[in-house]
Amino acid sequence: MLTTRLDLARIRAARRDIDPIFLDTPLYQCDALGRELGCTVSIKLETANPVRSFKARGTELFATLLAGHGGTAAVCASAGNLGQALGWSGRRRGLDVTVVASRRAPAAKLDRIHALGAELELVDGDFEAARERAVSIAQQRGVRLLEDSLDIETCEGAATIGLELADRAPSFDAVLIALGGGAMATGVGYVLKTLSPDVEVICVQPLGAPALTRSWHQRRVVTTDSTDTIADGVAGRYPIPAVLDDLLAVADDAVLVREASIVTGMRMLLERAGQVVEPSAALGVAAVLEDRDRFAGRHVATIICGSNVDLDAYHHWVRT
């Protein structure tokens, strides 16, 4: 039995609190992409919802519990997607939502946070600076702080993706999961290792933001002084110890990929699957590109986790 913070019964129950619009996202075998990569590839489209990422699965749980206990406000730090998701879930439940983000976050993500009615505060520095400011706001205002990956709702919300994959898992040899703070990797990994233990769970992170991958390999928290990647959604520097413990229990491997492979993966998803994705969503494809022999002849599934991308930057990347 796996020893983690997650619970399968709670994950199954979570489906009742998550708006069905975020559940049962498309999952299909993409033959054109598979022919290009030399293996069978299925893609799970977590972009097919109002906030264009998987994050709302977790914020739906969080906002339901907060409102149910009489809470009226919440604050989070976000690279962009979590803020949109919390704005969407909070607005539906009458919560006042504040999102703290880096000024360097993609403008498209910041604009959508505004559009959802959340208060947006920008800080200099990276995501870690935003996280420090969010903690300060929560203390000053006496409101609930949502910490992605640390708050179990974010992990167990994401874990409902695993339930949907597990229904088809006998056909998969491996599932490739983008690794940032760890909510999706620990959630999906936990469900798969509980229900379909033969499926290999492989986490993928950019070489320019390697903190949690290095931590997994060294079995201790490893921090970095900076990040350097276009995959802003997974660019953390300080892994959370409890999340690392969960990840060690459910991940079979954690790999790092180069920026050039991420860009190629984005281009291939556009040309072979018709999907405009943000860099984090192409990490699984990048992992296959960098180790074709490992995946040759196998059936891999990869989670397309977000499509909130700045179009000017996107056009530059895919045309380079």
Score class of each variant (00 low, 15 high):
residue 123 V to K: 08
residue 80 G to W: 03
residue 69 H to I: 10
residue 87 G to L: 08
residue 122 L to C: 05
residue 134 A to H: 10
residue 73 A to V: 07
residue 79 A to S: 15
residue 111 D to K: 12
residue 112 R to Q: 07
residue 122 L to H: 03
residue 95 L to R: 05
residue 115 A to H: 02
residue 121 E to L: 08
residue 111 D to W: 03
residue 71 G to E: 14
residue 75 V to F: 13
residue 120 L to T: 03
residue 124 D to L: 07
residue 82 L to E: 14
residue 64 T to W: 14
residue 60 E to W: 10
residue 74 A to S: 08
residue 109 K to F: 05
residue 109 K to L: 00
residue 116 L to H: 06
residue 129 A to V: 09
residue 76 C to A: 15
residue 104 R to C: 04
residue 81 N to K: 13
residue 94 G to M: 08
residue 104 R to P: 01
residue 117 G to H: 05
residue 109 K to I: 04
residue 64 T to M: 07
residue 97 V to A: 04
residue 70 G to K: 07
residue 131 R to D: 14
residue 96 D to E: 14
residue 123 V to S: 07
residue 77 A to I: 13
residue 106 P to H: 00
residue 87 G to I: 12
residue 111 D to L: 11
residue 73 A to C: 09
residue 83 G to E: 09
residue 111 D to E: 09
residue 96 D to V: 05
residue 134 A to T: 01
residue 121 E to M: 09
residue 106 P to G: 00
residue 99 V to T: 07
residue 99 V to A: 06
residue 68 G to K: 10
residue 133 R to S: 05
residue 89 S to F: 12
residue 61 L to T: 02
residue 100 V to R: 04
residue 88 W to I: 02
residue 119 E to M: 00
residue 83 G to L: 10
residue 125 G to W: 10
residue 80 G to Q: 05
residue 135 V to Y: 13
residue 103 R to E: 11
residue 98 T to A: 03
residue 66 L to M: 09
residue 96 D to Y: 02
residue 97 V to S: 10
residue 124 D to T: 13
residue 76 C to N: 11
residue 133 R to Y: 10
residue 84 Q to I: 02
residue 72 T to L: 11
residue 63 A to M: 10
residue 83 G to N: 06
residue 73 A to T: 04
residue 127 F to S: 09
residue 86 L to S: 10
residue 66 L to F: 13
residue 107 A to T: 04
residue 95 L to Q: 02
residue 102 S to R: 06
residue 126 D to G: 08
residue 101 A to F: 04
residue 60 E to Y: 13
residue 67 A to W: 15
residue 115 A to Y: 00
residue 84 Q to A: 05
residue 109 K to D: 00
residue 116 L to I: 06
residue 123 V to E: 08
residue 65 L to W: 15
residue 114 H to K: 05
residue 69 H to L: 06
residue 132 E to N: 14
residue 61 L to I: 13
residue 78 S to N: 12
residue 135 V to H: 15
residue 128 E to P: 08
residue 111 D to F: 00
residue 75 V to A: 12
residue 88 W to F: 11
residue 114 H to W: 02
residue 96 D to S: 09
residue 132 E to K: 12
residue 129 A to W: 10
residue 70 G to N: 06
residue 132 E to C: 14
residue 89 S to T: 09
residue 67 A to D: 14
residue 114 H to Q: 06
residue 108 A to Q: 01
residue 78 S to C: 11
residue 129 A to R: 15
residue 80 G to N: 03
residue 104 R to S: 10
residue 133 R to P: 00
residue 112 R to K: 12
